[in-house]
Amino acid sequence: MEAFIDIVLFGFLILTAIAIMRLRNLFAVVMLSGVFSLLSAGLFVVMDAVDVAFTEAAVGAGISTVLMLGTMAMTSREEKPPVHNRLFSFAIAVIVGAALIYGTTDMPPFGSPDAPAHQHVGPDYIERTPKEIGVPNVVTAVLASYRGFDTLGEVAVIFTAGIAVIVLLHGRTRPARTARARKKEKDV
C-alpha cells in the first residue's frame, strides 16, 4: 500500500515538474511549485518524515509561494521564450542524471533495515534519546541536542537571509501608497 501511494505521488510530482518546465505563465508556475511542495510533503509523510513534511508544507508551499508571488507582482507575469542553447542544457541534465543512476546501481535497496545507514549512528539516537534526553520525538532530540551546533548554524543562515533581504530592499518604500493610506485614515 505504501509503495502504491509512493508511486502515485511520484507520478504527480513528475507531472507537476514537467508542467512547471513547460508553462510560461509565471503565476501558474509559482502556483504549481506550491503544489509540488505540498505533494512532496505528502511523500515525506509516507516515508515517515513527519517533521520534514510539516516544515516543507509551511515553507515550500507557504512562505516560498508568498515570496514568489510578491516578486512576480513587482516584476513580470510572463516568461519570454527561452533563447538558451537547449541542447547544451539538456546534455548537462542528462549527464548529471546518468551519473546519478550509475551511482544508484551499487546502493543498498530502498527501505531495507540492513542498509549501512541504519546500522550506525541512526539507531544509536533512537536507543539513547530516552535515556539521555528524555523526549519522545527523536528528531527534536537530534536536532536540538546531538547535532545542536548544526541547528545553531541553521539559525545563523536564516539570520543571514534576513539581513540580506533588509540590505537589498532597504529604502524606496512605497511613498504614494502610504501617503494615500494616511490620508484615508485622516478622512475617516
Binding site: F149, D150, G153, E154, A156, V157, T160, A161, I163, A164, V167, L168
Partner: peptide, 23 residues
C-alpha cells in the same frame, strides 16, 4: 570535522557573500 556541518557553514558564508557582493 563533520561533513554535513561543512555544508551548513558553507551556506552561511555563501549567503553572506552574495549579500556583500550585491552591496
Amino acid at each position: 570535522g563533520d561533513a554535513f556541518n561543512v555544508f551548513v557553514f558553507l551556506e552561511i558564508s555563501s549567503l553572506s557573500t552574495y549579500t556583500l557582493v550585491a552591496l
